[in-house]
Structures are given as structure tokens and as C-alpha cells.
């Protein structure tokens, strides 16, 4: 039996390894390219092993910027992206947990209407409502501001639905026990609902951080100044149409840098995920 099992595991592992290599190869190539100098890449002499210019290239990327197209250092872009992604993730969690709490635990007139209106916004992603949204943000004078970057993306229904589904699984008796224990709506939220929601919050944070970090269309419209642009926009601008003018080693370094924060978030949150899953029980 054991022998058979071992042999049986070999094939799936091989398949998975092939899959991982296919996914990882371009990433590896980008990293290698970011450690050579421009000439080596342009001449097509790049070897598939890291070159000697790692520190130089990354220093220039983060603190100086490219010499053409966008001259902003990538450090600033990363800060912008980070503020935007955090703003979207935290803003969404805050708004959706509060609205879901209201919809699930309070009986107010037009409660279901409110819920359905929230629900309907699912069908209207940013791309669909981009013109009116742009108009409003522009009229409010929020172009080239962090508020303009984040706010329109914060408003969405996914988080509310997620929390609503989760709250519905919390037994009513917990609410009733809290009531008898003298906890009002706020205390019940703070002392019971919030601690029980940690895993859901972590999941939503990961999803929304990456969603915010990867935004392209909206920041492209709403930022005009170089010092407000996000890293995703930055990469695009670095790649100039005439191939020769592109400083590939810097563009690649930027791409590698752009990948790091989402990876960090996933890795860190994964721990919390598992911890939360193991420790809480309804």
C-alpha cells in the first residue's frame, strides 16, 4: 500500500512542479533582468543568472527614478500605492462591517430595501460607472488627492455581503446572552462580533489590499501629477514604445518591487487566517 501511495504521489507532484515553474519563470526572469545593466539587456546578452548591478539598479529605481518618461522615484510611487491600497482595504472593512451589522442586527424601516440597494451596486463596478464617478470626484476638487484615489473604490457591496453572511452564522443566543449580560448594541459589536470576525476581516483585507494595489484604470484617470501616480501606472509609463529608450533594468526592478507588498500581505495574513480558523468557534 505504502509503495503504491508513494508512486501515486510522484505524478501529481511532477505536474505541480511543472505548473509552478511556468508561473515562476517570468518572475525569475524579471528579477534577473533587474540586476543587469541596460546595455547587456538591450544587446540580448543577458544570461539567466543574476548580474552584478543589483544594488545600483534598485537604488536608482527607488530613490532617483528613470531618466526619461516618468522621473519620479519608485519610492514615492510605492508610497502612493500603499496609501491607496490600505485606504481601500481598511475603508471597505470599516464601511462594510458597520453596514452589515446594521442590516443583520437592527430592525429599521426599509431595512431590506437598504440591503438590496447595497446588493445592486455589485452590478456596477468602477469601470461601468467611471464617467459619473470621475465627474463627481473632479467637481469635488479631489483630483490628485489620496481621497480621490481611494473613496470611489471603497464604496462596494462585496464586503457587506461577506460580513452579512458571517453574522448570520453567529447564533442568536450569543446576542441574547449579551443582552442579559448588560451589553448594548455597541458593546455586543466590540466585545463579541468583532473578535469573532477576525478571520473574515483578514480575508477581506487580503483581497481588498491586492485589489487596491493592482488598480490601473482609476488612478490613471484621477492622477495628473507624477508625484501622485501609483506604481502600476509607473511601470506602464516606464515602458516607452521605442524599445531602445526603455530602461529595462529599471522597469524590471519596479515590477519586482510592485510584487513585494501583496506577497508580504498574503504571507502575513495567512498566519492570522490559520490562527483564526483554529482558535475561534461559534
Amino acid at each position: 500500500m505504502v509503495e503504491k501511495r508513494r508512486f501515486g504521489n510522484l505524478v501529481p507532484h511532477l505536474i505541480l512542479l511543472v505548473g509552478v515553474s511556468i508561473v515562476a519563470f517570468p518572475v525569475y526572469l524579471a528579477f534577473v533582468a533587474s540586476t543587469h545593466d541596460a546595455a547587456t539587456i538591450a544587446n540580448g546578452q543577458m544570461q539567466p543568472v543574476p548580474g552584478p548591478h543589483f544594488l545600483e539598479n534598485y537604488y536608482r529605481t527607488i530613490f532617483v527614478g528613470t531618466s526619461s518618461s516618468t522621473r519620479e522615484p519608485v519610492g514615492t510611487m510605492m508610497l502612493n500605492s500603499f496609501v491607496m491600497a490600505m485606504g481601500i482595504a481598511l475603508g471597505k472593512i470599516l464601511i462594510s462591517i458597520i453596514s452589515a451589522y446594521a442590516v443583520v442586527y437592527f430592525r429599521f424601516p426599509f431595512r431590506m430595501t437598504a440591503f438590496w440597494i447595497i446588493f445592486v451596486t455589485l452590478m456596477l463596478p468602477v469601470e461601468v460607472r467611471i464617467y459619473p464617478t470621475y465627474k463627481i470626484v473632479a467637481d469635488l476638487g479631489l483630483i490628485d488627492t489620496y481621497a480621490g484615489l481611494t473613496m470611489p473604490l471603497v464604496a462596494s457591496a462585496t464586503g457587506t455581503l461577506l460580513f452579512r453572511q458571517f453574522f448570520m452564522t453567529i447564533p442568536d443566543e450569543l446576542l441574547e446572552a449579551s443582552k442579559i449580560d448588560g451589553a448594548g448594541a455597541f458593546r455586543f459589536f466590540k466585545d463579541t462580533v468583532l473578535p469573532l470576525s477576525i478571520t473574515t476581516i483578514a480575508a477581506l483585507f487580503v483581497i481588498q489590499f491586492i485589489y487596491g494595489w493592482n488598480q490601473y484604470l482609476w488612478p490613471l484617470l484621477i492622477t495628473t501629477k507624477d508625484n501622485m501616480q501609483t506604481i502600476v501606472i509607473g511601470i506602464k509609463k516606464m515602458i516607452v514604445t521605442q524599445d531602445a529608450l526603455t530602461e529595462w533594468q529599471l522597469a524590471m526592478a519596479t515590477a519586482v518591487l510592485a510584487m513585494l507588498p501583496p506577497v508580504v500581505v498574503v504571507v502575513l495574513m495567512q498566519r492570522l487566517f490559520v490562527k483564526g480558523l483554529v482558535e475561534t468557534e461559534k
Binding site: 450569543l174 446572552a177 468557534e281 461559534k282
Partner: peptide, 30 residues
Amino acid sequence: VEPADRDIAMVFQNYALYPHMSVYDNMAYG
């Protein structure tokens, strides 16, 4: 009168203990 102000205590069928609190905190919460 609100449940909290009726000076009653209730034991539920499924116990309704706060899962994230220690036994001590469960008892101390009220």
C-alpha cells in the same frame, strides 16, 4: 424593562458561551 435590568440570569440550551473569551471572562463579562 430591558433584559439586563430585570435582574435575571439565563442558561441556554446550547450554553451560548462567548467562544473567544476564557471561562473566567465568560463569567465575569456580565
